[in-house]
Design a protein around this nucleic acid. Sequence first.
DNA 1: TTGTATGCGTTATCAT
DNA 2: ATGATAACGCATACAA
Lengths: 353, 353
Amino acid sequence: MKNKIIRIKDIAERAGTSKGTVDRVLHNRGRVAEDVRERILAIIKELNYEPNRIAQSLKSQRTYHIAVLIPDAAVDSYWEAPLAGIERAEKELRQYGIRISRHVFTPHVVQSFLAKANEATKENPDGVLIAPVFYKEVMPFFENWKAQGTPYVLFNTQIESVDPLCYIGQDSYRSGSLAAKILSYGLPDPCSLLVLHINEDIPNSAHLITKEQGFRDYFLQNEKVSQYQVISRDIDAFDINIDAHLEEILTTDPVVKGIYVTNSKAFEVAAYLEKHGIEGIKLVGYDLLQPNLDYLENGRIHFLINQNPLGQGYWGIHQLANYLVFNQEIPPIKFLPLDIITKENLDYYLDPS
Amino acid sequence: MKNKIIRIKDIAERAGTSKGTVDRVLHNRGRVAEDVRERILAIIKELNYEPNRIAQSLKSQRTYHIAVLIPDAAVDSYWEAPLAGIERAEKELRQYGIRISRHVFTPHVVQSFLAKANEATKENPDGVLIAPVFYKEVMPFFENWKAQGTPYVLFNTQIESVDPLCYIGQDSYRSGSLAAKILSYGLPDPCSLLVLHINEDIPNSAHLITKEQGFRDYFLQNEKVSQYQVISRDIDAFDINIDAHLEEILTTDPVVKGIYVTNSKAFEVAAYLEKHGIEGIKLVGYDLLQPNLDYLENGRIHFLINQNPLGQGYWGIHQLANYLVFNQEIPPIKFLPLDIITKENLDYYLDPS
DNA sequence: TTGTATGCGTTATCAT
DNA sequence: ATGATAACGCATACAA
């Protein structure tokens, strides 16, 4: 077992010098004779030295403060999962000095977001993890943080042309293509497919458009499946009478056999179909919310695409920690898997560990 | 930020005693006055002390030796992925004192397995990770390790009634049900479905039978889909003339519209279908091997179920480390997700990180 | 320019 | 029965 771990001391001995000198070389702090420096560097490379992260983090007593900006899970339960992921990461990273403060704002209420974002900024955190659901309003904060050198990680919603440390979430375009694949696979005969945006916040829904694009392009790129006609509709999620809209859409185009709901509101459609006893429509949506799961169980919803919201929170914190604590390079985008969920494999995704 | 981390020193101060005494209480090594002991225990509980794992593992210089028994990836490339997972875990855990020795045997050659298993046993490892592809032959080794108190973790192949520290892999039964769901979803009209065991090792293929059971039961439990007739066939993977067998099967029962290959050999079927220009058959199989991926890309294979073989190796080592290094409780079964893979979401599963 | 001493939290040994 | 102290590997202040 020659697998001995190389320590700074080993390098020092080999170089005929002391730990201090080696350390200065390792951290480029100068005050080292050039020939000694080169000798030490050669040995480091030869022995394939890797610093002992355990000892490093034991030594550095510094704590890092991460501010999290996230919508209230009590209002929209979707956000429970990212919060759980954040909590899990927090537990794992506490001993590495990671401290987290949560700033929970009310979804769809700009004032609430602004207040919380200001609050977070005032804390002068070492890093920010944010679900940037308010596209316009968040921009000045990005600039502010950038000017201060505070790294920020986006999750859930991708915003182009800002310059985050990292985006964590799904590839919306691919996501749409995947939905197209699933629906068309289950519908061998010519028919219409409906893309349904049940929207909460029209101006901040660029990613829904991207999904639709991916959906439509799937059929352009697969000439064999051009037997489908794709139509799309917007419904305001706060509209009292969703049913009426659905009825209008489904009766005016009676050959709709597949529906793709671009966010987590597939259960609304499922409820409508069930209430009216409409059979023979394939339904694909997003996210493992309880109402969606109920309809997945009874077969009204055929597939759900999982955005791994827990993973988004978990990896968001971890990426910040990797950057702050371990000085690692962070890739600017971390796309999480597009998991295809059915009744049969659901269990494995409910409590990922 | 009252989130201070509690140290042994803090407890000692609070109890008006020294670190040594607290340590003796924490580790139940006696030589502590009973009243002091209780006072300290109360404080530990009150302050919610949690040991600093970083300091612990820095201190403990002990190394743990894990022996891995795995088939040769040069013979069957399926095993590349578990090996990659093992390697990744090894890198992460080296600093915690985990050392791994690999014992690679030739698949389907019992002698090779026996030799390597003996070799591994002789090393007196602190733990064993094994892919128990030889059902009968491995049994005496389990008994041996059990008698010695050496924990062993099984992956890939589940064996009932042995007593491993943990099994890591898929739930074969569920896996079969999932395949049934996917095939029937894509085949709305009545037809026959073929379960194909392209087998390398008939006596050691209990899990393939379990898959078939899950597949068949799916249709029993979903009365709506009783329009399908399920047939099953075995083919010897070493048979020179697989094509002839397939031709015979597919011509004698011409209404087969879906094929479920219960292991990673779906590409064999895809090749046959392509060569003979047979269209209109849905094909589902396992594992992201390159030949499978090629046919997934060109549409001959419709879906692959991923057993996350990399994760199996990765988690296998991690579970052993959790047990050996961190004294954690290990759940006896860790089922990995049954990932549904298409061309559209393939990328995310190729290099999981 | 270089080497030495100290401390991070935990653990184990050794005096007291 | 208890407390002081050294060591793990690394970082750094300070002495030489």
